[in-house]
Write a protein that binds this DNA or RNA. Structure first.
Length: 259
DNA sequence: ATGGTAGACCTTCTA
């Protein structure tokens, strides 16, 4: 199984680029983030024409996540449990059917800037809610992948210029500690397990020539349950997509599992 | 020198 995650920064602004990539790469399943549209405006038919089943959890203007799969998606959950007052569309979960079913969780974690505001508190609370929910899912002891835009730079090696991010919510000690807390549940960072290398960035800002200067960060991650990590055979970061015409500021991450 | 771009959408917010 080839599993992909990609923050597309508006699915409708990016549609030709994204469809071209899916046609070439043909992942079996994919999580999309920042689709920036309500469910009714997601270009469902275009993905169905490529052979995908589509599940969307969108909202107007901001956020929004989707899941695409060549096999049917079952037990679909939209929205992260733990706070009925949270109306951001940032969480989608389903079981990818097949001979070896895989539970797939797609997340768009809050950015959290600026630090010291309610936005940062919301980010940390969201991370804590995610941890509590993943504890429940891990109890199933089944193959599971948690993929998406975590908006966390785990380690200094995950930034071209770590000092430039010291005041940023993505690199705060609390954000990094919460990410480590997820790993300590028993989840494996697929990138680090599979031939991790410095410079494997997934995001370059649109501003200040971040891409030509390679001022990148690694914030798009795939965490695997033990039953999935046992079958990990490869990780790719498709950095060439950042050089495309009208690119997203994130590039796709693809994980290969023998499941 | 605290700079710069992109997307949704209505005037500014988010990233």
């Amino acid at each position: 199984m080839r599993l992909a995650t990609w923050n597309v920064n508006s699915i409708n602004a990016r549609l030709p680029t994204v469809l071209d990539w899916f046609s070439r790469v043909q992942p079996d399943v994919a999580c999309l983030q920042e689709i920036k549209c309500i469910d009714e405006k997601f270009p469902r038919e275009a993905f169905e024409a490529l052979g995908y089943n589509v599940e969307v959890h969108g909202q107007k203007t901001y956020n929004g996540v989707a899941m695409l799969s060549k096999t049917p998606l079952e037990d679909v959950r939209k929205g992260l449990p733990g706070d009925d007052g949270d109306d951001h569309a940032r969480y989608i979960e389903a079981v990818v059917s097949g001979p070896r079913p895989v539970r797939l969780v797609g997340i768009y974690l809050p950015n959290g800037n600026p630090v010291g505001t309610d936005k940062f508190a919301y980010k940390l609370a969201w991370l804590e809610r995610l941890k509590r929910h993943l504890i429940e899912l891990l109890a199933y002891e089944e193959p599971m992948a948690v993929a998406g835009d975590y908006n966390v730079i785990p380690e200094p090696d995950d930034a071209d210029d770590p000092a430039a991010w010291t005041g940023d919510a993505l690199f705060q000690p609390q954000s990094r500690a919460a990410f480590r807390g997820l790993k300590w549940l028993g989840l494996t960072d697929a990138y680090m397990q599979a031939d991790g290398r410095p410079g494997g960035y997934t995001f370059w800002d649109y501003q200040a020539g971040a891409w030509p200067r390679n001022h990148g960060i690694r914030i798009d991650h795939v965490l695997l349950s033990p039953q999935a990590a046992d079958h990990l055979t490869g990780v790719e970061i498709h950095r060439d997509e950042r050089a495309a015409e009208k690119p997203s500021d994130h590039v796709p991450v693809v994980v290969e599992l023998t499941l």
